[in-house]
C-alpha cells in the first residue's frame, strides 16, 4: 500500500496551487481574503510553508510579512507538516477538573513527544485542544475523527496508541 506523500517541499507545479488560485479568484470579498486563503491553503497542503505564503502573496498582493503575521497569530495554522494521526487531548475546563492532565501525561509518555510536537516517523502529532465540545463525556481525547470518551482509567491509553502504530507499520510495508 502506498503512503501519502510525506515529503517536506512542495513542487512549483503541484496541482494544489491551481486549486488555491481558483479559490482566491472566486472569493468575492477581496477585502479580507488573506485569512480565507490561508485556511484553504492549509486544507489543501496540510501546512503552510514559505513557498505557499509566497504564492498567496503574489496572487492577492498582500505582503508575505503580513500573511506570515496572520499565520503565526492563529493556533490552527501550522508552518510544519503534521503527523499522520492527530491526537488531541481535550484540556477544556470540564475535562480538566475530571483529570485531563493525567490523560495528557499518559499520552505524552506513550507517544514519546510533547504537546505540539510530531514524532520522528511522522506518525503522531500531539495537541492539547481547548475544548472539543463534548463536556458530557469528559475526559475525552480524539484521534483523527474518533472520540475516546470517559477516559477514567489512563492505563487504557497505551493499547489505543499501539493500535494506530500497528496499522501504521502495516501500511508502510
Amino acid at each position: 500500500m502506498s503512503q501519502p506523500c510525506q515529503c517536506m517541499t512542495i513542487s512549483d507545479d503541484d496541482p494544489r496551487y491551481m486549486e488555491l488560485r481558483a479559490f482566491i479568484q472566486k472569493e468575492e470579498n477581496k477585502q479580507g481574503v488573506a485569512m480565507t486563503a490561508l485556511q484553504e491553503a492549509q486544507r489543501l497542503f496540510g501546512y503552510l510553508p514559505l513557498e505557499v505564503h509566497k504564492f498567496i502573496s503574489s496572487e492577492t498582493g498582500v505582503p508575505i510579512a503580513e500573511l506570515y503575521g496572520v499565520t503565526t497569530f492563529y493556533s490552527q495554522f501550522t508552518t510544519s507538516p503534521m503527523g499522520r494521526h492527530q491526537i488531541q487531548v481535550c484540556m477544556g475546563t470540564a475535562c480538566y477538573v475530571k483529570g485531563a492532565q493525567k490523560v495528557l501525561d499518559k499520552v505524552i509518555e506513550t507517544v514519546g513527544v510533547g504537546v505540539g510536537m510530531t514524532t520522528d516517523d511522522r506518525l503522531f502529532t500531539i495537541n492539547a485542544a481547548r475544548c472539543l465540545g463534548c463536556c458530557g463525556l469528559a475526559p475525552v481525547m480524539m484521534i483523527d475523527d474518533h472520540v475516546y470518551a470517559n477516559i477514567d482509567n489512563v492505563n487504557c491509553i497505551p493499547a489505543i496508541i499501539a493500535k494506530y502504530r500497528e496499522d501504521g507499520s502495516r501500511s508502510s510495508k
Partner: peptide
Amino acid sequence: ASIEGKRGM
C-alpha cells in the same frame, strides 16, 4: 479585525 483578514487583535 479577524473578519478583515488580519491578526485578531
